[in-house]
Amino acid sequence: MSKNTGQELEELSPLLRQMREKGDGLEVPHDYFDDFDKNLKQRLTERGVRRHALRQIPVAVKRRIWPGLLVIAASLALVLGAVRHFNTGNEPAELAVLELSADDITAYITENAADFEPEQLAVLEETPDAGNQSPAPEAGKATPEKEEIPVEAVEEIIDEMTDEELAELF
């Protein structure tokens, strides 16, 4: 590292070092630098100067910026991956039940009737048969593989079931 200017002048010319400390007497109008931006903008407008953004960030600068961007991208990927991973094993039970047919559910309830409260069974009996409410398939059209049952009915049943029952069901 080379000497600073003061040290260098001290050895080279003490007279010039002294004179430097007193300044050069050059002044600028008050507020010149504050007003400069406004005046420059005016000149750019008057001359109709067109500008173009940098075509690309210079390579030397990119090298300094990219590591930061990579860290951000990696963090984002990690968070998204974690969310996806933990969600896989905890899908809402209601969504899984909607994939079951009415027959599956009826069979399950019949087999485990002893585990249900009378009120729960009464609610089930009051619920219209979903299969009967569905319009009859038109001739020539394929019959759906699964009968549709009202979502509300399924939700009610699910709400009343214990975690163990749900675990056994699935």
């Binding site: 420059l40 750019l44 500008r51 173009h52 940098l54 030397a60």
Partner: peptide
């Protein structure tokens, strides 16, 4: 002089404004 310095400084930034697209970072 200040007047010339002001003129040259504004022209400098006008050129920077127009020419920054060509800055290559060398």
């Amino acid at each position: 002089t200040h007047e010339d310095a002001d003129d040259a400084l504004q022209n400098t930034f006008v050129k920077v404004y127009k020419g920054i697209a060509h800055f290559e970072g060398k």
